[in-house]
Structure formats: C-alpha cells, structure tokens
Design a protein around this nucleic acid. Structure first.
Length: 889
RNA sequence: AGGAGCGUAGCUCAGGGGGAGAGCACUUGCUUGACACGCAAGGGGUCGGGAGUUCAAAUCUCCCCGUUCCUACCA
C-alpha cells in the first residue's frame, strides 16, 4: 500500500538517466585515497577522442564495470579512471576535413591557429564517446577524467622523452620509415596494414658493364629503379656467379652500380636477381647498410619524383612515373615481361593510402632493453595475461621488436622537446623550453617541428593519469593497477608499450592482470566494420532494449578466449530476463510491500522445506558468482544468476511460497515474507554489477532498505550454515512428483482446470513424512484436490502411474485411462532406465574399475546402481499392473 | 612461411578424464492470483574423422579434414 505500484513492464528509458545522475551526485565512484580497503584500480583504455562507441567498447566497459562494482561490494577501494587519447592523425584529419569544407586548410591557418581550432573541436565534439560510456553505466570516477593532451599528461610525456634521451634510449637518425604520402607523416611499423593488391611483376634487363650480357631483375615498383644503387644475387647461385663484383649500367639513369652477393636473395623467386633501392624499401635499406651502398631517395614527401632522378621524371607522381618508366624501358627493349601478380601491399591504417618506404630523419625509441624487461615481468608472473594463450603472442612480438619510430610530421600532438641551435647546430633536449644554446650561447633556437606518436603518451597512461611525475597520493595508492581489460588487437600497440614504460619509470609493472576480452563479431562471425555496414550500434540497442539487456547479453557471451557472435535477437532475448526480474518484484511487493518480520533467515528456513531449499541454493549462488567474477568467467556469472533467478526462484520458489503467503498461518506467512525479501534483495545485489539500472530501480521500491544507493551496498553476507543437501534432496523428490502429475496431465490431455488426486507409494516413512508435510504445496503446484503418501499406499484400480525418483506415483482417474498410452510411456521410461543401468553395471562388473578407480567414484556408481534398480523395479511393477488391467478388460 | 584458436542439439555456445548441458528456435496444451517479454509438458546430439594413453576419453596425446584469426613477408 505504501509502495507505489510498479508498471506492468520495465521501461528502461525513464530509469537510466535518473540513476546515472544520482550516482554522480552521491560521488559514489570517487574514492578517497586515504579511505579504508585494499586498493583496486583500473585505467580505462582511452578511446580515440574522435571515436564513437562500438560493441567492442560496450563489451569492454561492461566487463570493467562488473569488476569495479563487484570489488566495491567486496570492500575494496576502487578507482576507475576514464579519459580519451588525442588521436593525433585521426583528429587532425577530422579537423582538416572541416577546414577544407570551408575552403581553408591548416597551412592557411598556420600552426598555432590550427592547434587552437583542434582544441575547439575537441571541446565541442570530443566528449561524445565519454557520454556514451556514461550511458552504459560505467562506474568511473569522472572527477579524475584525463586526456592525453592535458597539462599534467603532457608534462609526463616531456619528462619521459627527456629521460629516455638522456639514457640513450631515444635517438634521432636517418632511417627508412613507413611514409604516408597523404597524411604526410611517418608511421610506426604497427600502423601499416597489409592488404592484397593485384599488381604487376616487371622483368627488367640491366646491361652488364663491359659485356653484351644482361641480368634481369624483377620488381613490382619499376619507378624505384631510379634510386637503385646495386643489384643483388645469391652467393651460391651458379647462374650469376660470374657477374658478382661486376657492374651494371642502370637503364634510364646511366648510373654504374655493383652486382653484389647476399644470402638474403631468394634464388627461387623471379629471376633470382634483385634490384636494390635502399632509400625506398625496408629490406633494401638493411642490405644497403650491410654493403655500404648509397641510399638515393628519388621521391619527395608527397610521393613525387624529386631532383635526384633524371630530369624527365621530376615532379611526376609515383603512379605517373611508373607508367613513364615502363614506357621508356619498352622503347629500349629492356622490358622482358609483365605478369599479373597478387601481393600484399602496406597501407596507412588511417587513410588506406599505399605506404611509401622513405628515408628521413626521425626519432626512435631503442626498444630492445625495454622489451627485455617487459618480457621478464610476464615470465616471472608479476603480470599475468589472461587467457594465457596470448602470452606467447606477447613474447613473440617483444622478441622480434624493432625500434619504434615516434616522430610524426603532423601538428596535433605533443611537440618533440628538441631544439637545434641555428648558430652552432647543437641539439638541445630539455624539460623546459630553452632560451639560449648551452654550447655557444646563441639565442636562435628552433624547435623540432614534429610531434610524438599518440601511443607514446598512451604508453604512460597507467601512471601519468595518477599525476606522475609528481609523487601523488593517487600514484602511491593505486599504482600498479589491478587489471587492464582490452581487446587483443592492441596487445602490441598499447599493452606491451605500457609494460615497457611502466617498468622503466615506475620500477613496477603497470598492472597485475591483463584480461584480453573477446572480439565482438556479427552473426556470421565477421568482424564488425564500418565498411561492411554489419555493425550493431550499441546505442541503438540500449534505446531499444535497455542498457541492462545489452550489458547482460555481453556478459553472458563473454567466455574467456572466445569471440562473440552477436545478433540483435540475443539482446532481445535477454531483455525478457530483465522484465522477469521486474515482474517477480511486482509479485513480491504485493506481499512484502510493507516489509517482512524481523527474523533471521536461519529461523525462516525452519518454517518450511521450500524456504530451506531456496536459501541453500542462494548460498551456493553467492559462492559461484564470486568465483566466476574473480576468475573473469563473466559468462558463468550471468548463467548462474539467470538460472537461479528464473528457474529456481521464479519457477519453483515463488509458486511454492504462494501457499504460505496466501494462508492463515501467520508464522509461516511471516517466514515466507522474510525469505522472499531476503532472496530478492540479495540476488539484486549479486546482479547489480552486471545490470546496475534495473536492480537499482527495484531497490528503490523495496521496503526496509537501509542504504538507498545499491552501488554502495556490500556483497551479501555468507551463511554457509544454510547450505543443506537434505533440503535440496527432499525438494528434488517433491519436484519429481509434481512433474510426474503434470506429465500425466499433459500426456493424457486432461484439462488443466480439473483437480486430481495423487497417491505416492514411498520406500520409507521418512520420505512420506517430508511429502505429507508439504501436501498443500504439492497440491497447489500439481493442481490436486487430494494427496497421500506413504509406504502403505497401494495402486488404485483405474489410475495413471509414473515413477518419481524411487517412488511410485498414481493418479486415479474416474474416466477411462488410455492404457496403451500409459504403457507406451512407461516402456519408454523403462528403456531409458535400463540403458543407464547397463552402463553402471558394466562398470561395476569390471574388476579393474572397482580396484583402480577412486573409492568415492566406485561408491557413487554403486549408489546410482541402487537408485536406478529401484526405479526400474517400480516401472516394471507399474507396467505389469497395466498389463493385468488390460487383460482384465 | 610461422603461430594461435575453433569444430558439442536446427542456431549461438558453456563444459573439459567417471551421469551429454544452457539459452534461443521447434512441437503440444494453457486468459493457473507478477510476468504471453508469460506458464506447463515434450522432441532433438556416434561431442568433425581416425589412432593412442587409461580401469574409464566429448575431455589428455598424435595424425587427418574443415574453419577463423594473428604475425611476418619474396623483390
């Protein structure tokens, strides 16, 4: 009466925004570093500031939120830090596009104005994904939100750069890097993605100096010929042995270049003769360094042929130059052959432009020493990668790591803190912007125009977010973080680099666990992608089915080490569960709307078998759910909660409790109310980490709730003394009888309205006592007007029958029983039982089994043999009886 | 080329040496005192194939078949 009536169905839209605001107002997720409890911390993998929430994010946020909310319940001091990264190239691209639409460009604006413009963009649109994360219910501490371009984090970036430089772990040099001619910047090896392209394989003849002979090289990029500085063959290749040490005259250029021998060359590929262009090919670059070859760059930053090439080609785009070179070679009859050829070509991961390997001055991190430490930390268990199978991948990458190119030729990002003195050429790397050259005292200092790779700042995230390099309270309390949850695709990009930086600067691993979650795919198992258009928009799902339905679905599918194939129907299906929860509450409130008597659950359990049973099951549930979440088995937690709440609590307990709740016995009624409320509140608490909104909403409607903020309510107390095998076993028999009657009703097509009589022949009087005590309940569930149980019960004349456990169940029927149907049903049951019994008997008949299997396994089999034997006997009696009755007719 | 995973009911998947499970779908019957986003009853599987280890294999080992992904890349 006091509690307002709940609407007939759960309507998430009204509810979610309200609780998000409530939690925030209550500062529920802002921990005090000095507060009690063992710290538990997570840094959110910072999404790209230009990004929008996709299913992968939704899954990852849900997982982290489950962990955080659960550990808060367990009394840990939880800090979950949100934020975004500045996504240098992506963000710059976005802003440049909007400038282009206005007919402007970043060059027109100038560096400073452009950066200002990016900040403005970020203010306006950069909060989008964070708002989407907020809508998911993420229990992050918004008061500690971070951005990789923040002042504090920028300070950390500079500190790291300077220290690494001083330690010789950052260096600048002319090296070949991956160049995106569209983005005008260098990319790290990881930022290049390979995709199959159909190209051509050109066979080109190079004349050997001083002879009339040729060597034929094979290439997919004939225009790079202009930069060739050698031809290479395998040292053991008989075909070319005589040429090694000689020279060829480079066609179209006329340069005299050596023929060298190196085992790197594959004899089987093409002609076995390789043109070497150190300035434009990764492998050729290495080869060139090894053999002291000159690297002649023949393209500029936009992919056009430069002045190092013959005049004719200068200024041509690389694709135009290719055609021109091919034509000219044809004319000289030096082009032997052109074949179609499918091969993998590197593309820019941001814009899909074909990458041009390019020699230029760049900054690098010397990764080897850092990688060794990062590997060791996992080897000795300071950090565990879960599931374990990713550990090998992590090792492989670290073992084969190459130096990390960290300079980017863009404007949006952390400017490299390096200056060159215009007077003496001194290179100055400094925390503070220098004003005079320490070498010559000159004041003409020019800062390096490049910025750092975004991942450079992301790598510092687990400590920069806590205020490093300052020794803050947060840093002391919450570093190392407890767990990092992420998808495998950034294991290298990010996880490995955080490990390297965390270990180097903090001396401790950045996280104790790395949980690699599943990849969310579409119903056909394809990766969700914009280009395929097969993505399921999490926000649309949240609107349609409620955030809890989406969260529960993701949780239920989050089995470790396996990808998720997601279809919208799954989410729709789990919405039904949310609704079930809602309606069970509506029912409960009809009876406990004004609260329940203040008796202990233990006392209430004594009031009836059903109460003892559900309380026992509840205790087991607490243990399995805890174990599941702590072991990152989210699917198991969801499944257990689902099964308990729907199958045990709603299907059985609520139905059974109706008898006491509607009866006259005030003691029983009180106990039922107490148990109903206890089980409901405690399961809500257990479910809250997975489905925070609906549980909180229901919580607010329940009577006698002390703490109104469910996110602050501790994990329910454990009451191991309530676990009762006996109660659960007695209930098993009771259920078997109810199901037996229902089964008979269904098979014999008896109207559900008709009340029946059921008689049960039991083996023992103890069994009979338990059943008789619950006669009212059995009658209610099976729709009986009469129920009797005891060892003395004998089969009535005209009745349907079944075996329930080891008891015999009879349902007398006044009308004609269809004996044929009855007989068939029992026979089927008999066949099944015989089959099971045979398996058991065969085992027990095997001497090796009895002597070698563990005693408890043997005992279990013997027990099973007994039960099955009894059941079989019962079935056969029932069959015999029917046979007799049939004969009598 | 190297590495990892997966193959269990029609579908999506748990499980992981001693009873083949769940959800959805399906069949049948239901205005049963919260719920048709529901209730009740039911059908359905040589756990990809083969060999081995074991008293015992869906589970461990090896081989094969199919499938997905990752890393590297030969010009």
């Amino acid at each position: 009466m006091t509690s307002e009536a709940l609407s007939k169905g759960y309507e998430p839209a009204d509810v979610e925004a309200r609780w998000i605001a409530y939690w925030q107002d209550e500062k529920t997720f802002t921990p005090d570093p000095d507060g009690p409890g063992e710290p538990y911390s997570i840094v959110i993998p910072p999404p790209n500031v230009t990004g929008a929430l996709h299913m992968g994010h939704a899954l990852n946020i849900t997982i982290q939120d489950i962990l955080c909310r659960y550990h808060r319940q367990k009394g840990r001091k939880v800090l979950w830090i949100p934020g975004t990264d500045h996504a240098g190239i992506a963000t710059q691209n976005v802003v440049e596009r909007s400038l282009a639409a206005e007919g402007s460009s970043r060059e027109a604006l100038g560096r400073e104005a452009f950066i200002e413009r990016v900040w403005k963009w970020r203010e306006e649109y950069g909060g989008k994904i964070l708002n989407q994360i907020r809508r998911l219910g993420a229990s992050v501490d918004w008061s500690r939100e971070r951005f990789t371009m923040d002042e504090g984090l920028s300070k950390a970036v500079r500190e790291v750069f300077v220290r690494l430089y001083d330690e010789g772990l950052i260096y600048r040099g002319d090296y070949i890097i991956n160049w995106c001619p569209r983005c005008h910047t260098a990319l790290a090896d990881l930022e290049v993605e390979y995709a199959p392209h159909i190209g051509k394989l050109y066979h080109i003849r190079y004349p050997v100096e001083g002879t009339d002979q040729f060597v034929t090289v094979v290439t997919t990029r004939p225009e790079t010929l202009l930069g060739d500085t050698a031809v290479a063959v395998h040292p053991d290749d008989e075909r070319y042995r005589e040429f090694v040490g000689k020279y060829v005259i480079l066609p179209l250029v006329g340069r005299r270049i050596p023929i060298i021998a190196d085992a790197y060359v594959e004899r089987e590929f093409g002609t076995g003769c390789l043109k070497v262009t150190p300035a434009h090919d990764m492998n050729d670059f290495e080869l060139g360094r090894k053999h002291g070859l000159e690297a002649i760059a023949v393209q500029d930053e936009a992919g056009r042929i430069n002045d190092n090439a013959p005049e004719k080609y200068r200024g041509m785009d690389r694709t135009v130059a290719r055609k021109a070179v091919v034509e000219d070679l044809k004319e000289l009859t030096l082009l032997d052959d052109i074949r179609d050829y499918e091969h993998n070509v590197g593309e820019c991961y941001r814009c899909r432009t074909v990458i041009e390997p390019f020699v230029s001055k760049q900054w690098f991190v010397k990764t080897k020493p850092l990688a060794l430490a990062a590997r060791a930390a996992v080897e000795d268990g300071r950090t565990a990668i879960l599931p374990d199978q990713w550990t090998k991948t992590y090792y492989d990458w670290l073992d084969n790591i190459r130096d990390w190119c960290i300079s980017r030729q863009i404007w949006w990002g952390h400017r490299i803190p390096a200056w060159t003195c215009q007077a003496c050429g001194e290179l100055i790397v400094s925390r503070e912007n220098p004003t005079v050259c320490p070498a010559c005292g000159g004041d003409q200092l020019e800062q390096d125009p490049d910025v750092l790779d975004t991942w450079f700042s992301s790598a510092l995230w687990p400590f920069s977010t806590f205020g490093w390099p300052d020794n803050t309270k947060e840093l002391k309390t919450f570093y190392p973080t407890t767990v990092l949850s992420t998808a495998f695709d950034i294991l290298f990009f990010w996880v490995a680099r955080m490990m390297m930086m965390g270990l180097h600067f903090m001396g401790e691993v950045p996280f104790k666990h790395v949980y690699i979650h599943a990849l969310v795919r579409d119903a056909e198992g394809r990766k969700m992608s914009k280009s395929l258009g097969n993505g399921i928009d999490p926000l649309a799902m949240m609107e349609r089915y409620g955030t809890d339905a989406l969260r529960f679905t993701l949780c239920a599918f989050a089995a470790m080490g396996r990808d998720i194939k997601l279809a919208e129907e799954r989410i729709e299906g789990y919405r039904h569960f949310i609704n079930k929860l809602w309606n069970a509450t509506r029912f409960a409130l009809m009876h406990v709307g004004e609260g329940a008597p203040d008796i202990s659950p233990a006392e209430a359990a004594k009031a009836g078998l059903c109460h003892a049973m559900i309380l026992s099951r509840l205790e087991r549930l607490k243990i399995t759910v805890s174990g599941a979440i702590e072991g990152y088995q989210f699917n198991e937690a969801a499944q257990e909660l689902y099964g308990f709440f729907w199958r045990e609590f709603c299907d059985w307990y609520l139905e059974m409790a109706k008898v006491d709740l509607g009866g006259d016995d005030e003691t029983k009624k009180g106990a039922a109310k107490r148990v109903l409320l206890t089980v409901l509140t405690e399961t809500l608490t257990l479910m809250h980490p997975i489905i925070p909104f609906v549980t909180q909403e229901i919580w607010s409607k329940l009577p006698g709730i002390g703490e109104p903020n469910l996110a602050k309510v501790p994990f329910p107390p454990l009451r191991p003394e309530l676990i009762s095998d006996a109660a659960e076993a007695d209930m098993e028999l009771l259920r078997a009888i109810v199901v037996g009657v229902r089964n008979i009703r269904a098979e014999l097509n008896i109207n559900p309205g008709v009340r029946l009589t059921a008689l049960v022949h039991t083996e023992s009087s103890a069994q009979a006592a338990s059943l008789t005590e619950n006669a009212a309940m059995i009658s209610f569930l099976a729709k009986l007007e009469n129920f009797q149980a005891g060892p003395e019960v004998v089969a009535p004349k005209a009745s349907a029958s079944a075996a329930a456990g080891s008891c015999a169940l009879y349902v007398p029927l006044s009308g004609a029983v269809d004996f044929d149907v009855e007989y068939l049903r029992l026979s089927k049951e008999e066949v099944k039982t015989v089959k099971e019994l045979t398996v058991v008997e065969k085992k027990l008949g095997n001497e090796d089994f009895v002597s070698r299997a563990p005693a408890e396994v043997v005992a279990k089999e013997q027990e099973k043999q007994g039960a099955l034997g009894e059941r079989l006997a019962r079935l056969r009696e029932l069959k015999d009886r029917i046979k007799k009755l049939m004969a009598d007719e």
